[in-house]
């Protein structure tokens, strides 16, 4: 069964605004993420965010994956398997 996704286009924003926006969305959906009921996708063109967002996400015990397509980074956040 595919988990519903929620995508946020943060392109054009600079860090730390990107990080704060991402953290806000993650905070709002913390329990859904932990229970693997939702996957959040953040699109950004800010390279610094590809480091700061995953670091914060991992510290929260969530899984994070960064994929680059053209000039956009796709940061996927979801709950851990365990």
């Amino acid at each position: 069964m595919n988990t519903p996704t929620c995508e946020f286009d943060l392109r054009g924003q600079v860090c730390p605004s990107t990080l704060l926006t991402a953290l806000r969305e993650i905070n709002l959906r913390q329990s859904e993420l932990k229970e693997r009921r939702i996957v959040l996708i953040f699109l950004t063109d800010n390279r610094h965010a590809t480091v700061t967002v995953p670091q914060a996400v991992i510290n929260m015990g969530l899984h994070c994956e960064v994929v680059k397509t053209d000039n956009t980074y796709q940061i996927t956040v979801e709950g851990n398997n365990d």
Binding site: R24, N27, Q30, N59, M60, G61
Partner: peptide
């Protein structure tokens, strides 16, 4: 990039505090 008004409306302290709460829980 973030004027005083936007700063207040974004509530970065609240966001980071909430994140810290989740990090501490983890």
């Amino acid at each position: 990039e973030l004027d005083n008004e936007a700063l207040i409306s974004l509530d970065p302290i609240g966001i980071v505090s909430e994140s810290f709460k989740h990090i501490l829980a983890h």
